[in-house]
Amino acid sequence: MPTLLHIDSSAFTDGSVSREVSAAYRAAWQAQHPDGTVIHRDLAALPVPHLDAHGISAAFTPAEGRSAEQAAAFALREELMAELERADAIVIGTPMYNFTIPSSLKAWLDQVILMGRTAGDTPSAAGTPVTVIAARGGSYAPGAPREPYEFVTTYLEKVLTGMLGLEVEFIVPEFTLAATVPAMADFVQHAADSKARALEDAARLAKASAA
Rank of each mutant, 00 (worst) to 15 (best):
87 A>C: 08
57 S>A: 13
172 V>N: 08
147 E>D: 13
85 E>T: 10
54 H>K: 09
80 L>Y: 11
136 R>N: 11
51 L>K: 06
77 R>L: 04
173 P>E: 11
1 M>K: 04
143 G>F: 09
144 A>Q: 09
135 A>K: 03
190 H>I: 02
13 T>W: 07
81 M>E: 11
20 E>S: 14
134 A>Q: 10
130 V>K: 03
17 V>T: 15
149 Y>W: 15
119 A>G: 08
14 D>K: 02
130 V>N: 05
71 A>N: 07
204 R>D: 12
106 K>F: 05
152 V>Y: 07
26 R>Y: 05
105 L>I: 00
129 P>D: 06
113 I>A: 03
199 L>M: 15
132 V>R: 06
100 T>E: 06
113 I>W: 06
110 D>H: 05
174 E>Q: 14
46 L>A: 13
110 D>Q: 06
202 A>P: 14
197 R>Y: 07
204 R>S: 13
180 T>S: 10
47 P>R: 01
10 S>L: 03
78 E>T: 14
1 M>V: 04
129 P>G: 09
45 A>C: 09
57 S>M: 14
77 R>P: 00
133 I>A: 07
134 A>T: 09
16 S>H: 08
168 V>Y: 01
179 A>L: 03
86 R>G: 03
178 A>H: 00
78 E>R: 10
149 Y>C: 03
46 L>N: 14
157 E>T: 10
174 E>Y: 09
45 A>D: 12
23 A>Q: 14
122 T>G: 09
104 S>K: 01
45 A>Q: 12
184 M>D: 07
1 M>A: 04
138 G>I: 05
159 V>I: 09
130 V>S: 03
198 A>I: 12
133 I>W: 04
6 H>S: 10
162 G>K: 06
58 A>H: 08
176 T>Y: 07
169 E>Q: 14
187 F>C: 07
24 A>E: 15
147 E>H: 15
134 A>C: 13
210 A>R: 13
209 S>F: 00
18 S>V: 04
87 A>M: 07
154 T>W: 07
80 L>E: 11
182 P>A: 04
34 P>F: 00
16 S>P: 10
180 T>C: 01
99 F>I: 00
202 A>M: 03
100 T>I: 02
98 N>L: 02
170 F>C: 07
174 E>K: 05
142 P>Q: 05
51 L>P: 01
76 L>A: 00
4 L>F: 12
183 A>P: 10
122 T>Q: 14
98 N>Q: 05
121 D>T: 13
131 T>F: 06
203 A>Q: 15
56 I>R: 13
29 W>Q: 05
199 L>S: 06
126 A>S: 15
191 A>S: 15
93 G>C: 06
54 H>R: 05
72 A>I: 01
80 L>A: 01
171 I>H: 09
53 A>I: 09
190 H>G: 03
33 H>G: 02
211 A>S: 11
91 V>R: 04
162 G>C: 08
83 E>V: 04
129 P>Y: 00
209 S>N: 12
38 V>L: 10
198 A>K: 11
115 M>S: 08
60 F>G: 08
87 A>I: 05
103 S>G: 09
87 A>N: 11
177 L>M: 12
111 Q>G: 01
154 T>H: 15
1 M>P: 14
37 T>Q: 14
209 S>P: 11
94 T>F: 12
146 R>I: 07
154 T>V: 12
48 V>Q: 04
